[in-house]
Design a protein around this nucleic acid. Structure first.
Length: 121
DNA sequence: ATGGTGACTTGGC
DNA sequence: TGCCAAGCCACCA
C-alpha cells in the first residue's frame, strides 16, 4: 500500500518541537542532579553536557522556572565569570551564596575559585 | 510580526 | 582586571 498514514506535517512538527524542548529540560535536570556537593558548574557546561551547545541562556531560563521547593542543586550553577548570575540584593543570591559556602565553596570578592570548575561527570 | 529582554558566553580593547 | 559588542536561544508585548 502506498501508506497514506497522513502525518500532518504541521501538527506533528509542532508536537515534536515541544517534546524536544521537554526532553532537553529533562536532561538538564539529570545533569544538574549529578553535580556533586562542593563543586560548581557553569551554565555553558551544563548546557553542553545536556546536549544543548550554545544554549547557556536556555539553562538560565530553565533554572528560573524551577519551583522554589525543588530538590535540584540549582545553587551549584554559576556563570562563566565564576559569579552568581543574580542581583546581589536578591534573596536568591544570598541563598545561593550561603548554600555554596555551606558546601565549602570559597568566594573571593563575590567570585568562585576557578579551580572548582574542574568537574567531570 | 518585528523588537526587546534575560539566572549566558566569548573576544577585543 | 574590567567594560563593551556581537552571537545565540526562547519568551513576551
Amino acid at each position: 500500500m502506498e501508506n497514506d498514514d497522513s502525518d500532518q506535517p504541521g501538527q506533528r512538527q509542532e508536537q515534536g518541537q515541544e517534546q524536544a524542548q521537554h526532553e532537553a529540560q529533562n536532561r538538564v535536570y539529570m545533569i544538574l542532579a549529578a553535580v556533586p556537593s562542593g563543586k560548581v558548574v557553569t551554565y555553558g557546561q551544563l548546557a553542553e553536557l545536556a546536549g544543548l551547545p550554545r544554549a547557556a541562556r536556555l539553562v538560565g531560563r530553565i533554572l528560573s522556572n524551577l519551583p522554589k521547593e525543588t530538590q535540584l542543586p540549582w545553587h551549584r550553577v554559576i556563570n562563566a565569570a565564576g559569579r552568581i548570575s543574580l542581583a546581589e540584593d536578591s534573596p536568591s543570591f544570598k541563598l545561593q551564596k550561603a548554600c555554596l559556602e555551606e558546601e565549602g565553596i570559597v568566594f573571593s570578592n563575590n567570585r568562585v575559585s576557578l579551580k572548582k570548575f574542574n568537574w567531570q561527570p
